[in-house]
Design a protein around this nucleic acid. Structure first.
Lengths: 335, 335
DNA sequence: TTGTAAGCGTTATCAA
DNA sequence: TTGATAACGCTTACAA
């Protein structure tokens, strides 16, 4: 079965390929009669438009890339759904890649996008991405929107959440409940997201005349088990701590476990706030008070922005920061 | 900034475009000297290979599609990671689309893939997909691998899990623990996966001389909240139920929530088995006993199979059924 | 070992 | 309102 091209359609309709092309794209003036003839021929031949050829000719494309470091993380699943939906609205195709935090795979993907003539990309870059990577991107001046992980580089569009404000809300909630000895647990040393969250935490303490205690600000890996390990050390060394702001919900779950082990009741003897509002937050007992981030909305907004860039919007780089919300449940006590 | 093509590279290296192309693809005999000259020119010009042009010329492509109905579901997140990894190994690009169970969007995506000259696809079709859709696919004879949702059509490759055996294991586990009043919660009415899982459930009961109670087999949407809603009705109407086999982990999480609300302790007053082994299963408290289907492995195997088809493997359609495993954790009690 | 040139399927310019 | 035709950038016979 030969592939059907404009030529066969044109022959069958008794017109030129130019005419068929014009009918397909609704360009130029075509008489009703020929249009119908062409349409019929299109149908009869079972013609399939060759986007590749058109792209080559137009030096354009309708394909964008999405690079994540962990598609397995439900947060990114949500975000992807938001972006995918937005792209589909514009009849664009979405390439997906999962860097798994590997700078090499990330680089490979971007090169692949370039080779394949993608017209834009949304990136949540791997943790230790060197500046050279971003510089390389800029040199290609292909529209690129960064998401979630805060970026220092001011030349890129960015869509993320307000980490600073998020922990501020969390911290202020605890302060209002009367807590004065508040710790911060979680996040890894070199994370920009973490700095922002810690910023919200400490600034909020300072505004209330409390000086943050560096010994009460500790890192942890993004797992429940490490949350247990880290909090155990902290909470036994400093039993005077009565509340904890956690970098992530999963870490908070670990802290909960520790508190139980220490015989302290969550919400009564020690208050706990998480961040992310993952599913489990609502499930554990007591249910976890946490900061919710609209992941799907991040994807949607990133898509919208990227699309506008592809359309030629050349305003200066934008930073879209979505407001988080404090979801009050039970882990800070009932009243 | 003009785009650099083979022509500019050839000029700079003082050779023909044919030579440059051959160097790029390691074809034909090229002297070491010219190869080096070309390589240098490639580098100096900052040449970027135009895959689109090559694809047009070769009537080929390196792009495959993945159609899901819910990328938000952690199970599919895992599967996607597996497939993505496999595709990357072969330097293929992955198009992602989320049908959200809409036949129309699904159809649009497939057409888009065809237009874009994709060389294959992995599909988890929307629930009520008409046979015409599959027939249309066959007519194009483009390699397509179906995943997860069992398909009657024997003409397609399929990769999935053994749903029947999976719930058999789950049910038999509960029976061994002494439960006799076992309910089945979750899945939607017209789901083939669900029939298989219910098949495993009821057959196992029957083998143990118990007759399944239709009132204890209820549907639910694929969300935690609906799991709560549905289980609340069931478990208050029939307090004699002491164990539940859930269609999905997310539903099981909902059931957990209900049990708490009813003041019944999970694992002691009511045993619970899930299906999927999503990340949260290990994280909730008590940790969820569940049937693991190796989602990532499904993705990997589907990728492998698809790749072989693209390479020309024309053996008859294959059905790869991965064996599930019962992961015993805490939600059925400790002993 | 390297160069020439025809095509892949579409689009856009220009002429009819 | 339509048709001829030259690109788009790469690959591959075939020739040199």
């Amino acid at each position: 079965m030969m592939t059907v091209t404009l030529v066969q359609v044109a022959e069958r309709a008794g017109v030129s390929t130019a005419t068929v092309s014009m009918v397909l794209r609704n360009r130029g003036r075509i008489s009703q009669a020929t249009r119908e003839r062409v349409l019929r021929a299109l149908d009869e031949t079972g013609y399939v438009y060759n986007q590749t050829a058109a792209n080559l000719r137009n030096r354009s494309s309708n394909q964008v890339g999405l690079l994540l470091h962990d598609i397995t993380n439900p947060f990114y699943g949500e975000m992807t759904a938001g972006l995918s939906h937005e792209m589909e609205r514009h009849d664009m195709l979405l390439f997906l890649a999962n860097s798994e935090e590997s700078e090499e795979r990330q680089q490979k993907f971007v090169e692949s996008l370039l080779r394949n003539n993608a017209c834009g990309m949304v990136l949540c870059a791997a943790r230790q991405t060197p500046q050279a990577f971003f510089d390389g991107l800029k040199r290609r001046h292909i529209p690129a929107v960064m998401v979630v992980r805060p970026l220092i580089d001011p030349d890129f569009d960015f869509v993320g959440t307000d980490n600073f404000f998020g922990t501020q809300m969390a911290t202020s909630h605890l302060l209002k409940l009367g807590h004065r000895n508040i710790a911060f647990i979680g996040g890894s040393q070199n994370s920009g997201t973490r700095s922002q969250r810690i910023g919200g935490f400490t600034s909020c303490l300072l505004e209330h005349g409390l000086s943050p205690n560096p010994q009460w600000i500790v890192t942890s890996q993004a797992s429940q088990s490490d949350g247990v390990r880290v909090s155990e050390t902290l909470l036994t060394s400093f039993p005077q701590i009565t509340a904890v702001v956690c970098y992530q919900d999963i870490v908070a779950l670990g802290v909960m476990q520790t508190l139980r082990k220490l015989g302290r009741e969550v919400g009564r003897d020690c208050a706990l706030v998480g961040f992310d509002d993952i599913n489990e937050a609502a499930l554990v007992q007591p249910a976890l008070t946490t900061v919710s981030v609209a992941a799907k909305e991040i994807g949607r907004k990133a898509g919208e922005l990227l699309y506008s860039r592809i359309q030629g919007n050349d305003e200066p780089p934008k930073r879209i920061i979505l407001p988080p919300a404090l979801i009050i449940r039970e882990s800070c006590g009932f009243r």
